[in-house]
Design a protein around this nucleic acid. Structure first.
Lengths: 144, 144
DNA sequence: AAACGTTCTGTTATACCGTAACATTCTTGG
DNA sequence: CCAAGAATGTTACGGTATAACAGAACGTTT
């Protein structure tokens, strides 16, 4: 799915949910789409400054927060970054593999794994919420 | 297991591995043990400054890094924090369950789970690094 | 249209998180 | 003792994130 197509899907997705994909938020999403893999907030900020002349951290953080809340992006805590969600609209839980060297992202289906985890956690009285599973490691290209 | 007992276990654990649990590292571990759940590096730093008069960030970060590398603590990326490992000695990867309501933390062994994940990811040419799995949900007490 | 509340965005300032780089001290084996 | 490596002290900085308030845009009601 290319960027233009994704943006259309994002428009539809937000409209369905009554969320407003404003021009700023759309611009930020577009900037994130321009990268391959994990993006840092301050990278986006720098891009935004190049395009708008001036922008401050809260501007980009607010847009990113919105996009995460809408399910269009995922936050990658371990790397202080963000990635595009490639499963917008469907209810699958993803297994997201992030290469800690090159930042590239790969997604598998984590549904069976999360079912097992849910079972294990449930045995301890803990109900895990729907979520994606984020793991870091090295992709094929980055293994020496 | 109380703090004193844990410290003894930590001494033995490090001795077995040829790692040196110096007095500074032990002091940091003790400070972390004084908290219930997730601790931030700068909390520990503040405590250390109270006890020693002066200390700088690298001092506490180095000690925390050592304790994580030794398996005595886990780093919780999503929360920029650290927790005591409750399974010292069994050389495992943790499954850390964080209750999004009350903030309490519970730890299970994720080793078998990660073995499966490693196999699945390996099939795609991706090598998963050693790490903990952090999942959010609701603990027993917080399920209405 | 005018008045209003709500949501979004701009702006300034600051707090928090983490590490690089180098100096110094402390072990430990020869 | 002495050299080598490990651990700690110290300074300084860069990256990450948010608080707090001001202003603008938008829809709704009157």
């Amino acid at each position: 799915m290319d960027a233009a197509c994704f943006l259309n899907a994002a428009d539809r997705h937000c409209q369905q949910q009554g969320a407003k994909l404003t021009s700023l938020r759309r611009q930020v999403l577009e900037l994130v789409l321009g990268y391959d893999g994990v993006v840092k907030a301050y990278q986006v900020l720098a891009d935004l400054q190049r395009q708008r002349g001036i922008a401050a951290p809260p501007t980009v953080y607010r847009a990113l927060d919105f996009l995460v809340a809408s399910g269009l992006l995922h936050k990658v805590d371990a790397l202080n970054g963000y990635i595009v969600c490639r499963h917008v609209g469907c209810n699958h839980e993803g297994l997201i593999l992030v290469c800690s060297q090159c930042g590239r992202v790969q997604e598998l289906d984590a549904t069976p794994m999360l079912a097992l985890l849910r079972e294990q956690a449930g045995g301890e009285g803990f109900a895990i919420a729907p979520q994606n599973l984020l793991l870091t490691g090295h992709c094929q290209g980055c293994q020496a």
